[in-house]
Amino acid sequence: MTQSSTKISIQGLSKSFGSKKVLDGLNLDIATGTSTVVIGGSGTGKSVLLKCILGLIEPDSGRILIDGEDVLTAAPERARALRDQIGMLFQNGALFDSESVWENVTFGLLARNRITRADARARAITVLAQVGLTEQVADLSPAELSGGMQKRVALARAIAADPAILFFDEPTTGLDPIMGAVIDGLIVDCVKRLGSTSIAITHDMASAARIGDNIAMLFNGKIIWQGPPTAVMSSGNEFVDQFTHGRREGPIQMALRR
């Protein structure tokens, strides 16, 4: 991978909470236009990694380069501009209860003054159609939607600004297998259509195989294995093998007990 083709480069990223070291000198390069899925057990720091890139958590050390610029040392306005390229699908949707569906979808566009309120509803309906939702849901409150529909609205909100980078935090959590596959399909379609670079985090291996061009396993604060989805089930790495095959006993448990 050449430097010029790298959209996001994470170098030596560390973050501790009290005495617990969650990220420990993590390195990860994401090539432009590719989808990387970060897998790993609960509490291994997958969400912390995304939140560090988004600026929601301040890392203790390391560099986060977007388009070759370090967002941690850039001037606040520049860091904001770099991060404005990112659309984020949160684990539970994180839709705003006080806003209607269409207001949720166009929230970021309105906040950035990229659209007038008069045009926003029409734009929201267009984006909702891209995730398989009809105009009828536009004026509903998020609380009136099923879990799958909320996830679609959250996806619509993430893609509404045509972001160059998309993050997906556990996109299929809480969904039945069929709806999970539907959401994965929508994610793949959206990423392809927008030509975005994406990072998804999940511990759902079926979902990881569907949406990832590249899979990276996070353990003990580091990326311990990277490869294509076709190789992950026979990676030859004993930690990855235990995780992907869902074995109760293995090196992960032994390492955690130490």
């Binding site: 939140k51 988004l54 600026g55 929601l56 904001r80 991060r83 404005d84 990112i86 659309g87 984020m88 949160f90 684990q91 539970n92 994180a94 839709l95 705003f96 209860d97 929230f107 970021g108 906040a111 950035r112 909100r157």
Partner: peptide
């Protein structure tokens, strides 16, 4: 606790 505040930040607010 439902990440809506983080979502605001990611939406330039």
């Amino acid at each position: 606790v439902t990440d809506q505040i983080d979502a605001l930040t990611t939406l330039a607010t």
